[in-house]
């Protein structure tokens, strides 16, 4: 174990973990509104640990959607982890089971932060960054489930704007030059254009193709 890298990742992700706590608390509130029990909401954060998928699944349940629709929506929201996993793969050691377990620790911010910028990843940095966010993700849902009633309607407090703001911080950190800016702009345009036509989650997945264009035009 590379302890210094783990600690560095853990520390570097603290701001994201604090923000994640707030987002996760808002998930707890939304989950109860959707009819989940407090225990179910906490369990979901503890074993799914994927914010956008959890919000997507729960919002479909709240709208009276089918179980299969909720799980499909979660899968589509998570589809972006497919290209992330492919990018991460060469940086992980071990057999299939160890590789699967290591791959499962990825969250958006830890993946983005642990990228060395040359296509390789610092895996212990990634594990550290994920670990601190896991702690606050679970405790945040606990806080939301038991303290959310004190707030009233979470929308009055702009809680729904927190999750996108979290991604804004990650995005701005990734934009280092004209090329990354161009790829981001193209990805945004693709997603925006597909929103009315494609099921939720698909626009984000297709937007990852912008990376190919970014490499073609140098």
């Amino acid at each position: 174990m590379d302890k210094p890298a783990f600690r560095a990742g853990f520390r570097a992700a603290v701001p994201y973990a604090i923000a994640g706590f707030l987002v996760s608390a808002s998930f707890g509130v939304v989950a109860l509104d959707a009819g989940l029990s407090p225990l179910a909401a906490i369990l979901m954060s503890a074993i799914v640990f994927a914010g956008s998928a959890q919000f997507a699944a729960v919002s479909i349940l709240a709208a009276g959607g089918a179980v299969s629709a909720a799980i499909t929506a979660a899968a589509l929201m998570n589809a972006r982890f497919l290209p992330m996993g492919i990018a991460l793969a060469p940086s992980l050691p071990g057999g299939p089971i160890r590789r699967a377990l290591q791959g499962a620790t990825v969250v958006d911010s830890s993946w983005a932060m642990s990228s060395r910028g040359d296509g390789t990843f610092d895996r212990w940095y990634l594990f550290g960054a994920s670990a601190v966010q896991y702690l606050t993700w679970v405790t945040g849902t606990v806080a939301g489930v038991f303290g959310g009633d004190l707030l009233g309607d979470p929308k009055d407090f702009g809680v729904d704007a927190m999750f996108p703001a979290f991604f804004v911080a990650l995005l701005v950190s990734e934009i280092k030059d004209g090329r990354t800016f161009g790829v981001a702009a193209l990805g945004a345009a693709i997603a925006f254009a597909l929103v009315p036509f494609a099921p939720a989650g698909v626009p984000v997945l297709v937007a990852s193709l912008a990376a190919f264009v970014g490499l073609a035009r140098r």
Binding site: S52, R80, P83, M84, I86, A87, D108, W111, A112, S115, G117, D118, G119, F163, P164, F167, V168, L170, L171, E174, I175, R179, T180, F181, V183, A184, A185, L186, G187, A188, I190, A191, F192, V195, A200, P203, V204, A207, S208, L209, A210, A211, F212, G214, L215
Partner: peptide
């Protein structure tokens, strides 16, 4: 190419959310 996936995905996530 993979090094450029992050800005594309994150920008799309921001737009969609």
């Amino acid at each position: 190419i993979l090094a450029l996936v992050a800005p594309a995905l994150l920008a799309a996530l921001v737009v969609v959310s």
